[in-house]
Design a protein around this nucleic acid. Sequence first.
RNA 1: GGCGAGGUAGCUCAGUUGGUUAGAGCGCAUGAUUCAUAAUCAUGAGGUCGCGGGAUCAUGCCCCGCCCUCGCUACCA
Length: 677
Amino acid sequence: MSNFKRTLITSALPYANGPVHIGHLAGVYVPADIYARYLRLKGEDVLFIGGSDEHGVPITLKAKKEGTTPQAVVDKYHGMIKDSFEKFGISFDVYSRTSAKIHHETASEIFKTLYDKGEFVEQTSEQFYDEEASQFLADRYITGTCPKCGFDKAYGDQCESCGTSLNATDLINPKSMLSGNVPVMRETKHWYLPLDRYESWLREWILEGHKEWKPNVYGQCKSWIDGGLNPRAVTRDLDWGIPVPVKGAEGKVLYVWFDAPIGYISATKELTSDWKKYWKDPESRLIHFIGKDNIVFHCIIFPVILKAEGSYILPDNVPANEFLNLEGDKISTSRNWAVWLHEYLEDFPGKEDVLKYTLTANAPETKDNDFTWKDFQTRNNSELVAILGNFVNRVLVLTNKYYEGTVPEAGSLEPQDVDALSAIGQLRIEIEKALDTFHFREALRLAMEMARLGNKYLADMEPWIVFKTNPERVKSIMHVCLQLTANLTIAFEPFLPFTMNRLRTFLNMEKLQWNELGRRDLLKSGHKVNTPELLFEKIEDEAIQRQVDKLLETKKANESAGPSTAPAKANIEYDDFAKMDIRTGTIVAAEKVAKTKKLLKLTINTGIDQRTVVSGIAEQYDPEQIIGQKVSILVNLAPKNLKGIESQGMILMAENHEGKLVFVVPADDIADGSEIR
RNA sequence: GGCGAGGUAGCUCAGUUGGUUAGAGCGCAUGAUUCAUAAUCAUGAGGUCGCGGGAUCAUGCCCCGCCCUCGCUACCA
């Protein structure tokens, strides 16, 4: 680590199809910002890179849905994201975007270099093609009937109704979203990055060379490498993105995951003409801050791209965080289950640091964590207000009261005074160790320890009592307290930058470097401090209740209306219905299908015969429990082989939007084989 | 089913290469205190370290099996 001359910090590029929420902040931007501020405070050469990821299919779809252009969509969200980061105090040296010209050039160039070096494999395959729009269709551009639940607006990659992930070719009656026509299969050529060629190199580089990476990151990489790597397509048939800079690739763009990480490079170029120093000098250290969903791209794919290119450095560490949940549920942009940064900034003006503090103290560093408004309130009221704010206030109030705001002489220090002051130096060492190893939660706790120390010192020294009998002694005590307070401005600077700025104003002092932390003479005797205001204010129950209510409303909205109830399907003729032969039946035997999670092999008495049906209900029903269960069964469905078992029919199940499955049965006792119509 | 990460006090988490009575913060209880935003300080209660085996003089930490949560993946007529 000491061999490096400079550090390049990147933070995952937020996808410009929505605003930023607390999950993004806790996982990526807050830790990255703390790290960047810390290194800057140490006087190191550091760049902190960010930007919006603006390509990819979801953005084109969003544009279509809103009746606008992809560029308009990304302009809107890029502006919003950039603005809220700035207000929140994420201290990017540059915040760029992947639709920028310089990025298109950079990504093209890198692709071209790999192409010329013969690093790609060309492969032709069949894909859906819309003849009217004369273009190939990404999975997301195809809708059709979900083969599982019958929902008729399922996408080519996933059914939004039942959550099943699909292949476009699975869809019944596939339709192009562009023209509404039935797509045809047509051959298309794509370029693949042969990850398999780099398997042994990756093994060496990560598994041997980076054992210090976090367990979640290392484990995930090991899993991928051990599982065997396959070539990955890095081009797509799409008209939104960076054109593939090769002859015969008209109408094709770079896969969004090929171009997005290159955005780190383009952003650096945009910032400084000196960018090569950061990207190509082995004495530069590259750190990627990301969430766990991005591990494979930053640890496997992007490094392979850089390695194949040949002239770039590779990440030295990738401190990926787990996920943050919100009030017990997964954060979800589409379900609006989130605390949006831009809304927080409006609802809690001037409390940027409170959110930073809470998210850091409760960061999902080792496992998924839960954000609750109650916890947010507690952390503010009983930590920021009660420990840190209170100590600062006590010191400044006493200083103004006794000395009209002038720092008193140190006088002769007692052992306790010296202990208190030297504890700062000790804490500094521990904080550095925590920050250097990306343990931000621990680092923050240690900084807080410094304020606790102050409160304890005050309680032990009782200057308000000693003042009556020995005012000379109180000067020493208050001198120590003021030095402690001044040190806080350094220790907390990476975590609470806005607040420390205010505290420095109270103390009437300049911003100091990290290496001053631990000094006992940050404020000279005779120095004048200002009358303090409160550093933090209590957050009352009502403010918290408002936020909780807001979430409850979201929950209600999701439950009642919303996309949960699938819309009615298109009308059919009676004949279509009459073709179906649905009977009552009884389950006479049931067993789990080996090596599957959802499948049960059922033996059904249909009245006509006994037959085998494979059904995906194992997660909700135990085999023993459902023997004797009455069912409705579609008996004339064409048989299908599943996991080597022939399924001769289909059990009817009612399913709600949460995926809960319930048997559809006759309301009264009736013989097996009775027709349902 | 396969792979990965977790399962430690009511809550959120630390626990270094196995070594004396398992730690911290919050919350709770009791006491002290009043300079301070009813803030602070002290003390205390609270844990068969997911469950069951095993190796060891010794294990939260090692080995085997199982259970639960999260993620990736397969499957979902």
